[in-house]
C-alpha cells in the first residue's frame, strides 16, 4: 500500500509512541498522569479535526460525546458490573449513535448556526443527566474501590487505563490520516471548501457530513470512559465541561486544522502551557481568558496553525509533514 509510505504518518505515530513510552521508561506515576492529560488532549483535538479540519464544521459542544460516552460506560461498570473493555466500547457506540442522530438533523445548519446548536446540545444533555435518576442525577455515580481489584489493584488499573488511552491515540491518528487520504476525505474537504459546489459535483454532502460527525464523536466517547474510570466518579459538571470543548478548538487551531500532525502538536503544546499557567497564581484563574486570547491570536496571525504554517514554507516540509 503506497498510502502507508507517507513519512508524515510515521513521523506523527513516532512522536506519539515516543512520548507515550516515557512514563514506562521512567517508571513514573506522575509522568504517566501528565502524559494522560496530554494524550487525552491529542485525541480530543484529532477527533475534532475530522469534523472541523476536514469538513469545515465548527462544533463548539464536542465535549458532549466525551460526557455521554463517559456516562454510558461508567453506568455499565458501576451498575451492571461490566469490565473496562466492553464499557469503553459501549461509550464509543453511545457517542456514535448520538452523532448519527444529530447529524441527520443539525448538520443541515451551516456556520454559526451549527456551532450554536452544538453548544445547545451539550447544555441540554447536561441538564437531562442532572435529572436522570439511573445516572445519579446531580451527584453522579461512583465506582466502588473494590472494582479495581479486578484489574490487579489500583496501580495496575491506572497503567491499564493509560495503555488503553495510548492505543486509542494511535488509532485516532491513523484514522485521521486514512480519512485524509481517502475518497471519503476528499469529499469532506470539497464540502469544507464549497458545499454547494461539492454537491453539484456529486458529493452526497448530508451523508458524508454525518459519517464525519460520527467518526469524530467515537473517540471522545471512548476516552470519556477511560477518564472517568480512572477518576472513580462522574458528575454532570465534569462530564459536560464546555470549557474543555473550547480548549479542544484552541488546541486544534494552534497545531493546525486539516493536518494529521497538527492536533498532536497543538494538544501537547497547549497542555504543557496550561500546566505551566496552572502553577502560576496570577494565571490560575485566567486560563479561559488566556485560551480565548490565544485563539484570537492564532486566527489573526496563523489561521492555518503551526503545522499549516510550516507546510506552507517549502516543499520539503510539505512532503514531510502530513
Amino acid at each position: 500500500m503506497k498510502t502507508f509510505r507517507s513519512p508524515g504518518l510515521w513521523l506523527t505515530l513516532g512522536i506519539v509512541i515516543v512520548a507515550a513510552g516515557f512514563p514506562l521508561l521512567a517508571g513514573s506515576a506522575s509522568l504517566r498522569e501528565m502524559m494522560f492529560v496530554v494524550l487525552m488532549s491529542v485525541t480530543l483535538a484529532s477527533s475534532l479535526n475530522i469534523l472541523l479540519g476536514y469538513t469545515g464544521y465548527v462544533s463548539f459542544g464536542h465535549i458532549v460525546f466525551f460526557g455521554l460516552g463517559g456516562y454510558v460506560g461508567f453506568y455499565t461498570m458501576a451498575e451492571l458490573g461490566w469490565n473496562l473493555l466492553p464499557a469503553t466500547l459501549a461509550g464509543g457506540v453511545a457517542a456514535a449513535v448520538l452523532a448519527f442522530l444529530l447529524g441527520k438533523s443539525i448538520l443541515r445548519l451551516r456556520g454559526a448556526y451549527f456551532a450554536l446548536a452544538t453548544i445547545g446540545i451539550n447544555e441540554a444533555l447536561k441538564a437531562f443527566v442532572n435529572n436522570f435518576g439511573p445516572f445519579g442525577g446531580p451527584t453522579g455515580m461512583e465506582l466502588h474501590f473494590s472494582v479495581y481489584k479486578n484489574y490487579g489493584g489500583a496501580t495496575q488499573a491506572l497503567w491499564t487505563t493509560y495503555w488503553g488511552l495510548v492505543l486509542i491515540t494511535l488509532l485516532v491518528v491513523l484514522t485521521s490520516f486514512l480519512v485524509k487520504r481517502s475518497k471519503f476525505g476528499l469529499g469532506l474537504m470539497a464540502i469544507r471548501e464549497d458545499e454547494d459546489a461539492a454537491e453539484v459535483m456529486g458529493v452526497v454532502a448530508p451523508d458524508a457530513k454525518t459519517w464525519a460527525f460520527v467518526l469524530s464523536a467515537i473517540f471522545p466517547g471512548l476516552i470519556g470512559v477511560l477518564f472517568f474510570f480512572k477518576n472513580g466518579n462522574i458528575e454532570p459538571e465534569d462530564a459536560f465541561r464546555l470549557q474543555l470543548s473550547i480548549e479542544m478548538i484552541v488546541m486544534l487551531m494552534l497545531g493546525g486544522q486539516g493536518t494529521v500532525l497538527g492536533p498532536v502538536i497543538g494538544g501537547a503544546t497547549y497542555q504543557r502551557v496550561r500546566g505551566f499557567l496552572l502553577t502560576s497564581p496570577i494565571f490560575k484563574n485566567m486560563q479561559l481568558a488566556v485560551a480565548g486570547l490565544l485563539l484570537l491570536l492564532i486566527v489573526l496571525f496563523i489561521p492555518s496553525g503551526a503545522v499549516g504554517w510550516l507546510r506552507a514554507r517549502n516543499d520539503t516540509l510539505r512532503r514531510l509533514l502530513e
Partner: peptide, 26 residues
Amino acid sequence: VRPLNELTVRENVTVGACFGREDHGL
C-alpha cells in the same frame, strides 16, 4: 467560478471524477 481554493487543481478535478457519473476510486 467556485474553485475549491485550498485544494490543488488536481484534487479539484479528482473530486469530479470520484463523485461524478462513474463513481471512481481515488
